[in-house]
Computed example of a mutant assay.
Amino acid sequence: MAGQNRFFRGGLHERSVIKADGRPAGTCVFISHKWEDKEVARLVAMELQALGLDYWLDVDDDDSMAAAREGNEAAMCNAVERGLQNSTCLLALISRRTRGSWWVPFEIGAARAYSRTLVFLVHKDVSDRPAWMTLGTVISDRLDLDSWANAIGAPTRLVEVRKAAISRDIDSVLPRVRILR
């Protein structure tokens, strides 16, 4: 079964239930990115969806988009916190542009406050890493992505996904194998 955006166009799907202990029901990945990387974030979201993982992406959330249009930072913070409350982990897209982001570090800090797992997907054009990436799992290539997806229980078999055209789009973001120094 394909994953879904739990917050697509503002409507919470039935799988976005928060359990009595305050944790979200089922795996959901909050995708953190700098606005200029929104198309790359969409590619990552499509890959997660193909793997059968639910996700939250601000560009598909009506509350986030309304807050951005209005320049309402408080409403944006509320939308981010709602997304994190319904997510089990935060996947931060680390690109060359991330260095100039105010929101990515805020979202990482908020995810830590909610005790969410941190995952850092390092774009293939990035060679250096911020020190705070030691706080989570680093995905630097396709092998890392596959391993992480398996570890969090991606329901779709990776072989099936890798045959799909959508999966080849992620090659523009992650190399198949990379060694970071």
Rank of each mutant, 00 (worst) to 15 (best):
A131D: 11
D141E: 10
V138F: 00
D146F: 01
W102N: 14
A151Q: 08
W102M: 12
A110E: 09
M133P: 11
L93R: 13
I139P: 15
R96Y: 06
Y114A: 15
M133D: 05
G109S: 10
V159E: 08
G100P: 14
A113C: 14
R112A: 11
P105K: 12
M133E: 08
T98I: 14
A131T: 10
V119K: 06
P105I: 03
E107P: 10
T137L: 08
V138M: 06
S101C: 12
D141M: 06
W103I: 05
R129K: 12
K124W: 00
L93C: 03
A149N: 02
V126D: 01
R99S: 08
P155T: 00
Y114D: 13
D146A: 08
I152S: 01
D141C: 10
T117I: 07
V126K: 12
A113G: 14
W148S: 01
A131F: 06
D125V: 02
T137I: 10
I108R: 14
A151G: 08
V138K: 13
S95Q: 10
S127L: 07
I152K: 07
R142F: 00
G109M: 11
M133S: 11
D128M: 11
W103E: 02
P105Q: 07
A111F: 06
L93I: 07
M133T: 14
S101D: 03
S140Y: 04
V119G: 01
A111V: 10
V138S: 09
F120I: 04
A149L: 01
F106K: 15
V159D: 07
W103D: 01
T134P: 14
W132K: 15
W103Y: 08
G136W: 02
G100Q: 14
A110D: 05
P155I: 00
V126T: 06
D146C: 06
V122I: 01
F106Q: 10
N150Q: 09
I108P: 09
S140T: 12
S147Q: 07
L158G: 05
V104M: 06
T134N: 12
S127V: 05
N150F: 01
V119M: 01
M133V: 08
